[in-house]
Design a protein around this nucleic acid. Structure first.
Lengths: 236, 236
DNA sequence: CCAAAAGTGTTGTGACTACACCCATGT
DNA sequence: ACATGGGTGTAGTCACAACACTTTTGG
């Protein structure tokens, strides 16, 4: 069960390489607030404790880091995630007892609602959604995962605060009220309808889908979609 | 010169691990604007071309990623850098001809002025400062390094825009005019003195060093220092 | 006509830019 | 005295939150 060795060899020199994994912080928006996906580990280290889903980087299977993250998402969720973003990398000599040096590339994802009902798979005792603010204060999580969730929450909230709406996430088309409710669930507080809509209009973030309306019990609502995200406008 | 193999072994399974490097984007503030440190490669691939300084992650020497980045900074600059920040990771199967799968953790650093005069070392033909806006548009840079510099510039500028002053970077103590000149050089445009100072005061970013003044040709200027950076205030 | 949700207008407040102005010092 | 950079005050503008208001539907 222990790791024997790993190394990187050249004709001139040989360097051992770190045990490299991908960790996923998968958020979902629940009416009561943000939720995060956790798995219960069956194997040491931290057997029986909850942790972020993740997996080993497979250079024989993955073309790049993002496809590695998507592969692991499929393994855990049963479906690729529409929006994924790299968070950063953490690495050190004493992060994971299984290896002398462990490196994790952390990705952050947002999936629509809780339509995804993941099933426990290989080497996983259980997999379930947990309220994110709950998990961010749970000291019993495995590895350094509590801290990662805490930072990811502040990160996603500040992105929504700045109205950086993650393209590909929101189930288009949507009504403006639905969009606002989603943002409110992520932020954890109410927003003003008028201010919210003014900012959406000024920054041209959404556009109406002409002739399409959400029919309901009351007045129908215009459906909108995100306007194509600006491709890295470094100008200003 | 080619790489033979590298792998990660367990008693149950064996996974090959990626060729893992650290790349450094070292910025310096020059009166004429932001500059970036580049090296001229002697070896393939991209021999004779300019590239970012970097080095292989050495799990036998580095306790964690940040100390790896500092070790490489010392190797290249001859001195540790006071401010360094992780930028992210890029990895893929076709990034570096030397290895089937290459992973780079990119770090961004800011060093005071150009007091640092790095000397060419092993496997480096030359090392020199280049205007950053120049390098960000130079298509002849090795690997994907042009893109990395471009993104790093927008990143550091937006940080300075938000007055996130990288603690440990600025040579304390400083006068407010010196601090403003540094920010202007990074941003590439002039700032209003009054607005700049009002924001510094309101957000309590700097505090005067009592009784200390910069003597010069004219009226002496109060010296300031950064107030201790808030340790991740997720509240609000 | 009423309830409920969609959608728009309005107003006061606070933050910012641009600019003008005083202050202190060496020559 | 005056040139130079240090340091402060002010007025117009703009973005915003809060809140009130009108509109449109189903029952």
């Amino acid at each position: 069960m222990a790791i024997r060795n790993y190394h990187h060899g050249m004709t001139t020199k040989t360097y051992p390489m770190p045990f490299t994994r991908i960790e996923l912080i998968v958020f979902a928006v629940h009416p009561s607030g943000l939720e995060v996906l956790l798995i219960k580990r069956t194997e040491a280290p931290f057997a029986g404790q909850w942790a972020l889903p993740g997996g080993v980087l497979r250079i024989d299977m993955d073309m790049d880091l993002e496809s590695a993250a998507q592969r692991i998402a499929v393994e855990r969720l049963g479906t690729p995630v529409p929006y994924i973003e790299q968070w950063g990398a953490i690495g050190g000599a004493s992060r994971d007892p299984r290896a002398p040096w462990a490196l994790s590339i952390v990705y952050q994802a947002l999936v629509p609602g809780e339509q995804i009902q993941p099933k426990p798979g290989k080497r996983i005792a259980a997999i379930d959604w947990r309220p994110a603010s709950d998990a961010a204060t749970d000291a019993t999580l495995a590895f350094d995962h509590r801290k990662l969730i805490e930072l990811a929450m502040t990160r996603i909230r500040s992105a929504i605060d700045r109205l950086e709406l993650p393209a590909g996430y929101f189930e288009t088309p949507f009504t403006l009220t639905e969009l606002q409710a989603t943002c409110e669930a992520i932020l954890g507080h109410r927003l003003d309808k008028s201010s919210f809509r003014r900012k959406l209009a000024e920054r041209q973030l959404v556009q109406p889908v002409e002739g399409q309306f959400r029919q309901g019990a009351f007045r129908p609502a215009q459906l909108f979609e995100l306007v194509a995200a600006d491709p890295r406008n470094a100008s200003r």
